[in-house]
């Protein structure tokens, strides 16, 4: 089963952010709690942990791309 992960709101004033780095490459497996990507918001840069375990099927928001809260950022095969 594939799941689309969306950009979460990680700050009270966050409307959008930039994914500055993906720590997992497409095709690679990861576990729930692994660091998935680094997100720069107005307030801070945070390392976001994977909410589920699986394989990173496809990255929809590339490094350096500005994304709005709720936008799809990647597809995970569980």
């Amino acid at each position: 089963m594939s799941t689309i992960l969306k950009l979460p709101r990680v700050g009270m004033n966050m409307e959008e952010g930039t994914i500055v780095e993906w720590f997992v490459k497409p095709g690679k497996k990861f576990l729930e709690g692994d660091k998935l990507y680094a997100l720069e918001t107005d307030k801070t840069t945070a390392e976001i942990e994977a909410p589920i375990s699986g394989t990173l099927e496809e990255i929809l928001a590339k490094d350096g791309e500005d994304v709005t809260v709720g936008d799809p950022i990647c597809i995970v095969k569980e």
């Binding site: 009270m12 004033n13 409307e15 959008e16 720069e40 918001t41 107005d42 500005d66």
Partner: peptide, 17 residues
């Protein structure tokens, strides 16, 4: 630096850097 009360009102975030 202004000598008056100034209300400084911003959005919570401002889109792109």
């Amino acid at each position: 630096r202004d000598d008056n009360p100034v209300f400084y009102l911003t959005a919570g975030s401002s889109g792109k850097p």
